[in-house]
C-alpha cells in the first residue's frame, strides 16, 4: 500500500541550533511576509509524539468518571445504517421501564427522525446532528448529556451514527460497546469490519425473525463473531417479535447492577 515518507529528500536529520540554512539549497518553504533573512530562520525539529486521538480519549475518560459517579450504565450502540439500532433501543427501554429509567442520546447526520421516534415512546432524548461528521465524539456526548436530567436516569444509551468504520476509533466514555449486525447483512460482516467488531463488548445479531427469509447461516455468523469479537457477549434478538430479548434485557439489568455496585462500594 503506502510506502514511506513522501517528501523531504534528506530525511529528518536532527537540526542543530546553529543550522547553516544557506548550505541546504532550494528549500521550498513558503515564508510569510515578515520572514527574516534565510540565515536567521533556522529550522528546528520539535519532537511531539502525541496521539491524534488523545484529546478525545481524555474527554472520554472525563465522561466515564462523570457517568460512574452518577451510577449510570452507559451503552454505545453501533452498526451499519439500518441494522435496527433505534428499534432495539426503543424496545429495550420500554421493557426495562418497570425497574430502570432509560435516557437516549441519538447521533444522526441530518434528520431528527430517530429522536422523534424515541420521544414518541416517552423517552427522554437528546439529538446530536453531526452534519458532515461521520461519528460521535466524546465532546459531543458531554454537551448532549448536559441537556438530560442524569440523576433521574439509570441507563444512558447512545445511538451512534450508522457507520461501521469511523466510530470505532472514538471512545465516548461508555461502559459497553454494543455492535449490531442484522441477519440481512450477511454472515461475514465481522470479517469486513474487524476494528469495530474487535472492539465490541457485546455483539447483537438483530432481526432474527427474518433469518429464514434471508437465508442466514447462523453457525457461520457465530463462528465469525467468535473469531473477531472474541471478548464479546453475543445475543440473538428480534426487536420486532421479542424473540431473544429476555436474555439481552437480563444482561443489561445485570450490567447496571455491577456499575452501581462499583460506585456505592
Amino acid at each position: 500500500m503506502d510506502g514511506q515518507a513522501t517528501s523531504g529528500g534528506g530525511g529528518p536529520a536532527p537540526h542543530p541550533r546553529d543550522h547553516d540554512h544557506a548550505a541546504e539549497p532550494a528549500q521550498a518553504h513558503a515564508h510569510g511576509a515578515g520572514a527574516e533573512s534565510d540565515a536567521a530562520a533556522a529550522h528546528q525539529t520539535l519532537p511531539v509524539r502525541r496521539s491524534i486521538l488523545e484529546k478525545n480519549e481524555r474527554l472520554a475518560e472525563r465522561n466515564r468518571g462523570f457517568f460512574r459517579a452518577k451510577g449510570l450504565l452507559v451503552l454505545n450502540v453501533l452498526s451499519a445504517p439500518g441494522s435496527g439500532k433505534t428499534t432495539l433501543i426503543r424496545k429495550t427501554a420500554e421493557a426495562l421501564a418497570q425497574g430502570l429509567r432509560v435516557g437516549v442520546i441519538v447521533g444522526d447526520l441530518a434528520t431528527d427522525n430517530d429522536a422523534a421516534r424515541l420521544r414518541a415512546a416517552g423517552l427522554p432524548v437528546v439529538q446530536i446532528t453531526t452534519g458532515t461528521v461521520c461519528h460521535l465524539e466524546a465532546e459531543m456526548v458531554a454537551r448532549a448529556a448536559r441537556q438530560l436530567d442524569l440523576d433521574a436516569l439509570d441507563v444512558l444509551i447512545i445511538e451512534n451514527v450508522g457507520n461501521l468504520v469511523c466510530p470505532a476509533a472514538y471512545d465516548l466514555g461508555e461502559d459497553l460497546r454494543v455492535v449490531l449486525m442484522s441477519v440481512t447483512e450477511g454472515e461475514d460482516k465481522p470479517l469486513k469490519y474487524p476494528p469495530m467488531f474487535h472492539s465490541a463488548d457485546v455483539a447483537l445479531i438483530t432481526k432474527i425473525d427474518l433469518a429464514a427469509a434471508a437465508g442466514f447461516d447462523r453457525a457461520q455468523a457465530l463462528a465469525n463473531l467468535h473469531r473477531i469479537s472474541h471478548h464479546a457477549a453475543v445475543f440473538e434478538v428480534s426487536a420486532k417479535t421479542g424473540q431473544g430479548m429476555p436474555l439481552w434485557l437480563d444482561y443489561v439489568a445485570q450490567q447496571r447492577q455491577s456499575v452501581r455496585g462499583s460506585t456505592s462500594g
Binding site: H15, Q44, L46, P47, R49, R50, I52
Partner: peptide, 10 residues
C-alpha cells in the same frame, strides 16, 4: 498508531 511524531518550525 495515529500520531503526530514531530513538527519542523522556525
Amino acid at each position: 498508531e495515529l500520531e503526530l511524531a514531530a513538527v519542523e518550525v522556525s
